[in-house]
């Protein structure tokens, strides 16, 4: 069978679908001081999985605010710097109007994913961390 670390080189999704791959990628991103990209990406996926229903409305709003405050709000963080202003406004509007849609972070996640695909993921595949692992 194909060893997992070779699968990681196939696509970002193959990498993010494997616990060991995620750990190694996180180590690399921490070195580059941008592990928030990965945390934000998973936070968006986790948020989308929370079904809207009366029982967890409060939790979803609290979580949306937490994601917004930690990653999106201008505080100089890498995620905030990479998300487009229009996308940030859209997320802010959803929170202000308390309309937390499961898809409200989708566009922001897509933008961060594109950055990882174009930048950090190819760098990771050429990094000492990955090469030593293989």
């Amino acid at each position: 069978p194909t060893p997992p670390y070779l699968k990681w080189a196939e696509s970002l999704h193959s990498l993010l679908d494997d616990q060991d791959g995620i750990s190694l990628f996180r180590m690399f991103l921490q070195q580059e001081d941008c592990a928030d990209l990965l945390d934000f990406w998973f936070a968006c996926s986790g948020f989308r999985k929370l079904e809207p229903c009366d029982a967890n409305e409060e939790k979803r709003l609290k979580l949306a605010k937490a994601i917004y405050r930690k990653y999106v709000l201008a505080g100089g963080g890498i995620v905030a710097r990479q998300i487009k202003p229009a996308t940030k406004s859209f997320i802010k509007d959803c929170i202000v109007r308390q309309q937390v849609d499961p898809a409200m972070f989708d566009q922001a996640q897509t933008e961060i994913q594109a950055l990882m695909e174009d930048n950090t993921y190819p760098l990771f595949l050429k990094s000492d961390i990955y090469l030593e692992y293989t």
Partner: peptide, 20 residues
Amino acid sequence: IDSEDDLLQECISSAMPKKK
């Protein structure tokens, strides 16, 4: 703030792939 961090952490973990 702690509980907000816990909530975020729980959310991030829920999206991670399970051990194969």
